[in-house]
Simulated assay, not measured.
Amino acid sequence: MRLERLDADDPRDLLRALRAALGAGPAVALGGAEVPDEVPAGTAVVLTTSGSTGVPKSVVLSRHALTSSALATTARIGAGRWLLPLSGSYIAGVQVLVRGLVQGEEPAVLSGRFSAAAFAHAANGMHSTRGGIAVPRFTSLVPAQLQTLLDAAEHDRAVHRALAGFEAILVGGQALPAAMSERAAARGARIVRTYGSTETSGGCVYDGVPLDGVRVEAVDGELRIAGPTLADGYLDEDLTARVFPTDGDGVRWYRTGDAGGVEDGSVSVTGRIDNVLVSGGVNVSLDRVERVVRELPGLEGAVVVAAPHERWGETPVVVCENGDERSLAAVRAAVEAALGKPARPSRVVVVGTLPRLASGKPDRRAIRALVR
């Protein structure tokens, strides 16, 4: 099957491309990475993501996987019209459009930079009826966007009405703080916490419960997922073999790299097994941040760890024996230049002596406890 590259800056172009890809093709490539001109039959999207390691990975998603996810979402929360306030270069944005296409309801699109006013304008313009009954409205956000809306809703009635007007608001990409969830509920927003990844065609666990057809198990502390929403794999065949193993019963699993467990059918996620955090829905490799920080004068021995952040979920924090809080501006500028804004540390913590293991290596667990 032919594969066409697409710049997802204009969601309407992406919508047209996805409509074709879910039909007879061609498939669409998103993310800007080098990809082949041909992909296996049945492919709809090749989406290149930073992944859990911070290293780009090109995920191959079939028509069957994408539509299975969309149909399972409809079965769980209902059908209606969707609003896209997310970038189309991420799976959450792609899935908003796919759900609309599968349901035969043209999605509404929030154009330009996200703001509370733009969201409210788009949401309040979605009102429609079918047979005299209002068509339910749905949307998908990351926590940072939700916080922007909640802050604005304190004094803007239009934003408040928009939040309360959705049948369900999917929130994923990172952990949702309990305080933010409570604020949303107080504003009448019906929040559904989602868990998933590009490799699972987006969220496949809603409020801790897997979607119909999805299986989640914990193996040696790592969450693994099976079901019809799984990607076919990666363009890298060796990586596919490692991350998508098949068990003795012929069941194909996706190794998430997330630590967690499953109890009484409820999935809990406790963090990443590797050294990566998710800040504002973007994966950030702490190893890469640390390498940049250690290039700065006086910070050669600095350690970078993850710490909770009210707005972004998690952010990098620099811990060092030298320097002071005035180092923060230089650190943020250097990291932004090398890795982008989501990777910028939020704090510099100066300690007398860095906790270390017997081997002399930094005791990262102790350091994380210190900054948290």
Rank of each mutant, 00 (worst) to 15 (best):
S115N: 09
L354P: 00
A21R: 00
E4F: 03
A79V: 04
S52Q: 04
G271D: 08
Y90E: 07
E167L: 00
L22V: 02
G208A: 11
D363N: 15
S181N: 12
G165K: 01
P297K: 09
S266M: 07
G88E: 09
G100M: 06
P143T: 14
L61D: 07
E34P: 04
V319K: 09
G323T: 08
L230A: 00
D236K: 08
A186F: 02
F119I: 03
R224T: 11
A189L: 08
R99T: 05
A259L: 12
A152D: 13
A120N: 07
I191G: 01
A79G: 03
Q145A: 13
A307N: 08
T73D: 11
A218W: 01
A118M: 07
R63K: 11
A334D: 10
T353C: 09
R368H: 08
E105I: 00
R356P: 06
L141W: 15
G54Y: 10
R291Q: 14
I169E: 04
A241S: 15
L84M: 03
V305K: 03
L149W: 14
V284H: 05
V305H: 04
A29L: 02
S266Q: 12
R332Q: 15
R272Q: 13
T240K: 01
A144N: 12
E154D: 15
A338V: 07
T139M: 14
G131V: 03
T74G: 08
G188I: 06
R113Y: 04
P56Q: 05
E38R: 15
H160E: 15
V269D: 04
W253A: 06
G298C: 08
V171W: 01
E34W: 00
D9L: 01
G313Y: 05
T256I: 06
L146A: 10
L66C: 01
H64T: 04
V214P: 05
V305T: 05
V171T: 09
R187N: 11
L235C: 09
G31H: 11
R365K: 14
R187M: 12
D363C: 10
L354R: 02
I225F: 03
P297A: 13
Y254L: 15
D212G: 07
P26A: 06
Q95F: 13
D258W: 00
W312T: 07
P355W: 12
L15E: 08
G301T: 12
G281R: 14
A72N: 04
N275G: 00
V159K: 08
V278I: 06
T256G: 06
H309A: 07
N275K: 01
L370V: 01
V350L: 11
D232M: 15
E237C: 00
V318N: 02
